[in-house]
């Protein structure tokens, strides 16, 4: 207790409490609209392809990875002067060693590229949820438009801050009658061939320009499908007909009934792989993002801080888990069962 009464800790404690009080009384953050699909940024499209904020984040993550990687290998030195080169070499060496422990030297060498690409890309895609401005800078639309397009029912008031517009904490909920009216109006506008716009917006919602890429199911399911199909391609290439046997395809004769059963299980587990891989990544990052939203909504200062630390860890862990599971699937696909030779 006496330690807490010394000037420095005391000042910190009082400052912290003051921050909490200020944030509770004056700085209230609206709870962002939580939407499962990546949100289309209004007025940003290439031809027919509507660009979503998660797509922007994906491109950003790509650019970050590529820039860092190319800077790291721009001029390779035997005695590295640049820290970046050092870090990349270190990462490469550590993970190659880890993969060697799991799958042996030859396989580690062959797939360390896939592993590292997944790891780096997902790492920056996950960590993007922590960057200030992402999820909070974007286009402000009337809630009616958002309801007609995405089914959002909660809007907020707006306030002008110089050249910028910001949402305030005044919540507006669309009642059932209002929703009906909006639906009808939107249909009419569509029939007339013009863009629906309410006469007098009740509230506004924010569509951020950038939202962490892995909070879009399209990305995670796409990646999971890619790596699972990839693992089958690799397995078929390396083991040939023997590989098809593990799924107990009826083409291969001389099967025991139990093999058929195991084969069906293996077949189902391939779908489970896709689902668990994609939803694990998506669920963790999406839940983390919602957690950060809610914490900032409750008390905007100090309270979210430990959760940022947590999300930093979760972001790395999920990227690592996705990458290492990919490697393990690849390894399993090329692993010829010892029992197969005896059949």
């Amino acid at each position: 207790m006496s330690k807490l009464l010394r000037p420095k800790p005391l000042a910190l404690i009082i400052g912290g409490i003051a921050l909490l009080v200020i944030s509770i009384l004056f700085v209230r953050v609206p709870l962002p609209t939580i939407l499962l699909p990546g949100e289309a940024i209004p007025g940003l499209s290439i031809g027919n392809f509507q660009i979503t904020n998660t797509f922007v984040a994906t491109i950003l993550a790509d650019i970050i990875v590529l820039v860092l990687a190319f800077l790291a290998v721009r001029k390779m030195e035997d005695v590295p002067e640049s820290k970046l080169q050092n870090i990349f070499e270190w990462v490469y060496e550590i993970f190659e060693g880890m993969l060697t422990d799991i799958g042996g030297k030859e396989k580690a060498k062959a797939w360390v590229g896939v592993f590292l690409t997944l790891l780096l890309f997902l790492l920056f895609a996950n960590w993007m949820e922590l960057v200030p401005g992402i999820d909070s800078i974007g286009v402000i639309e009337p809630v009616e438009v958002a309801y007609a397009e995405k089914g959002v029912t909660v809007g907020y008031g707006i306030k002008h801050l110089g050249p910028f517009i910001t949402l305030t904490n005044d919540q507006v909920k669309l009642s059932a009658e209002e929703r009906e009216a909006i639906k009808k109006e939107a249909e009419e506008a569509e029939a007339a061939g013009e863009k629906y716009h309410p006469h007098e917006p009740k509230g506004y919602v924010l569509t951020p320009y950038v939202r962490a890429a892995t909070t879009d199911l399209n990305l995670t399911i796409g990646l999971a499908l890619l790596v699972v199909i990839w693992s089958h391609v690799i397995g078929f290439r390396r083991l040939g007909a023997k590989y098809a046997r593990r799924f107990a395809l009826p083409v291969i004769t001389g099967m025991k009934p139990i093999d058929l059963f195991v084969g069906i299980l293996e077949f189902i587990s391939e779908f489970a792989k896709v689902i668990s891989l994609s939803f694990r990544l998506f669920g963790n990052v999406f839940a983390g993002q919602v957690l950060l939203f809610v914490m900032a909504f409750l008390i905007s200062f100090l309270l979210p801080l430990p959760f940022f630390g947590l999300e930093l860890f979760v972001g790395f862990m999920q990227a690592f888990v996705f990458a290492i599971l990919t490697f393990i699937y690849f390894e399993q696909a090329t692993h010829s069962h010892a029992g197969d030779e005896h059949h």
Binding site: D101, S276, F279, R280, G283, A287
Partner: peptide
Amino acid sequence: GEIRTNMILGIVFAESIAIYALVVAL
């Protein structure tokens, strides 16, 4: 080190059950 890697993998597999629940909830 080896145990830690395997532990993380085990956690991942146990966690995928929760992921299925999450899918249903979503």
